[in-house]
């Protein structure tokens, strides 16, 4: 489980870059469509890690009943462009 976490974190940064601000559920759903294994287990742990590293910003949304995550200023967006 812990082994793939760096890859999952990278995936989340890419997803947030592509999708814009998103909730955990939205990120899990997108990871699922990409066929990422065990994303329901992996994505939240990776988000918690990124949040701990201050790579994400969070806004609490009543509308979505969720946290809306976005990339923080610490993330070099140019590295996420393809």
């Amino acid at each position: 489980m812990a082994k793939g976490i760096e890859k999952t974190k990278q995936l989340i940064l890419l997803l947030l870059h592509d999708m814009g601000p998103s909730s955990t559920e939205e990120l899990i759903a997108e990871a699922e469509t990409l066929g990422i294994a065990e994303c329901r287990d992996r994505v939240p742990g990776a988000i918690a890690d990124l949040n701990g590293e201050r790579m994400l910003t969070k806004q609490l949304s009543k509308e979505k009943k969720a946290i809306v995550w976005d990339l923080s200023d610490k993330v070099d967006r140019s590295k996420l462009d393809f």
């Binding site: 909730s23 955990t24 559920e25 939240p44 988000i47 918690a48 949040n51 009943k65 969720a66 946290i67």
Partner: peptide, 11 residues
Amino acid sequence: KGINPHEVAIL
């Protein structure tokens, strides 16, 4: 009930 438990744990 619809709130993601991981997000609550993170908060």
